[in-house]
Design a binder for these strands. Structure first.
Length: 484
RNA sequence: GCGGUCAUAGUGUAGUGGUCUAGCACCUGAGCCUUCCAAGCUCAUGACGCGGGUUCAAAUCCCGCUGACCGCACCA
């Protein structure tokens, strides 16, 4: 299976490892090895460059992973991130208690406490939908990791953040002021988030501790149907998978301008769809057939997301199209929620116009994107395994090799390695045959091999070997940097 | 959480109570050879997931834990 082959390389070469492995590991947690760390950092750098350059008023900020309980009352996570579960006494199947109450009693279960739901289930004698057995008391299961901050006597309940986004909302007011009161402003956060999944499956896809890269754009809702650069992108074809295509499975290619005209999606939203697609197709080189925007139905999306399309990539090892990110129009849900819960005014005043800005969220799961790069670009040619990673995200840009282990060649090669290392991540290797060393680099996605041979001594040229074609060309040492 | 299957070097595996001081292949390291694509030769490193039990004796049988995989449920 492809996921086994990728995991094999990942473990053997140093991309990812199970966390706390020497103690037996822990489900849903992975560590990054030396190659994985290089690669993830490069993915994040590429992400930064791409999304922060969309507007001079977009910046990266950073926020803590631990936040006090009240934050999550304001954000709605304490209420909405909690699932009421009930278990069957007989067959031990577990069910969402609120869903059962809604289905069986045809009443709204929103806002009911665990006790109220237990009472309703007992009164109405709702049986186990599977075996008809008796259902036990409802227990609240919250997906957030709970912590107590401070010494036990006066400790305060806090949580590990379940998404990086909250940091941007909490810092909105100060950021807005320090960035001199302009809209739109964008606050990006790249960092860890935590969800206590009941049972994480699919290896690296659903993690309990994971990395997110998110950009929260705060804008004036009256301007949602305009974008200064819309003209430039109006003819771009977007790969859309709207709700009505669910049964056919077909992806429509729709021009940005038509998306506006025929589907009524606002221009500000469309502009960012275009930029996201550009990131995946042009920066990450994914074949366009593997990419699509998937529209979410009302019950799939969070209630506060007014418009929600997921970014999906076809990932063989994960069994089909999988969510890599999303573009969420969150309205003023977050800022208004925090304004209400904190008592702090989060509305802004621009030239006499008072408003709570609306939020467009670009949200990406870093680890999933990382895994999918390995999946999509991995090829087993039989006698050669390679990962055709785009050079921007490959852990190493090039390998530097002396053709043979001879001092006169090694000296030149080491010298090239040292000089170019200021600009590129390189890997120096002088052991084994030259072919073996090329193959080793192919397997970890290194795009180029720079080889010092006997001709180098005479005319100061080296060969540069390209990973995918295995073709070589001879260039002057001073011009290597232009060719890799 | 439940049910099923499983756990031996970095990876893939052999091993069915004593022949295990745990075999093999690939990988890795040192050396020889080698003027560009996994060649060859020599040598070397490295493993029974963790904890308990049964037994004269456990990689092997039993129990618990942890983890992986597959179903069910869960997945703002």
């Amino acid at each position: 299976m492809k996921s086994d082959e990728i995991m094999d390389i990942a473990l053997r070469r140093g991309f990812i490892y199970p966390s706390s492995e020497i103690y037996g590991g822990i489900s849903g947690f992975y560590d990054y090895g030396h190659l994985g760390t290089l690669m993830r950092r490069k993915w994040e750098d590429t992400w930064r460059k791409h999304y922060l350059s969309l507007n001079p008023n977009y910046f990266e900020v950073d926020a803590t992973n631990i936040m006090p309980k009240n934050v999550f009352i304001g954000s709605g996570h304490l209420e909405n991130f909690t699932d009421p579960l009930t278990e069957c006494e007989k067959c031990h199947s577990r069910f969402r208690a609120d869903h059962l109450v809604e289905e069986c009693l045809e009443r709204c279960a929103e806002g009911l406490s665990a006790e109220e739901m237990s009472g309703l289930i007992k009164e109405s004698e709702i049986p186990c939908p599977k075996c008809g057995g008796k259902l036990l008391d409802v227990k609240m299961f919250n997906m957030m990791f709970e912590l107590s901050v401070g010494s036990t006597g006066d400790s305060e309940t806090a949580y590990l953040r379940p998404e990086t986004a909250q940091g941007a909302f909490l810092n909105f007011k100060r950021s807005f002021n320090t960035l001199r009161g302009k809209l739109p402003i964008g606050l990006a956060i790249i960092g860890r988030a935590y969800r206590n999944e009941i049972s994480p499956r699919q290896g690296f896809y659903r993690l309990r501790e994971f990395n997110q890269a998110e950009l929260q754009i705060f804008f004036d809702p009256d301007t949602i149907d305009e974008h200064p650069d819309f003209e430039k992108i109006k003819d771009v074809s977007l790969r859309m998978f709207p709700l009505q295509n669910r049964s056919s499975g077909e992806v429509d290619e729709v021009k940005a301008s038509e998306l506006h005209k025929n589907y009524g999606i606002p221009k500000f939203y469309i502009y960012h769809l275009v930029k996201i697609q550009e990131f995946y197709l042009d920066k990450m080189n994914f074949p366009k057939e593997l990419f699509r925007f998937r529209e979410l139905s009302e019950d799939e999306r969070a209630f506060y997301n007014k418009i929600h399309w997921d970014v999906e990539l076809y990932t063989e090892s994960l069994g089909g199209y999988k969510e890599m990110g999303g573009l969420h129009y969150r309205t003023d849900y977050d800022l208004s929620g925090h304004q209400k819960a904190s008592g702090e005014k989060l509305e802004v005043n621009i030239e006499g116009k008072k408003m709570v800005p609306h939020v467009l969220e670009l949200s990406f799961g870093v680890d999933r994107n990382f895994w999918t790069l390995l999946d999509v670009f991995y090829t087993d040619e039989g006698d050669r395994k390679l990962i055709s990673l785009p050079k921007e995200v490959a852990p190493f840009r090039a390998g530097v090799f002396p053709l043979q282990k001879k001092e006169e060649l090694e000296n030149i090669a080491k010298n090239i390695y040292e000089r170019l290392s200021k600009w590129f991540d390189l890997f120096y290797d002088d052991s084994g045959s030259i072919g073996r060393r090329y193959r080793r680099q192919d397997e970890i996605g290194t795009p180029f091999g720079i080889t010092v041979d006997f001709q180098t001594i005479e005319d100061n040229t080296v060969t540069i070997r390209e990973r995918d074609s295995m073709e070589q060309k001879r260039v002057k040492v001073e011009e290597i940097w232009k060719n890799i």
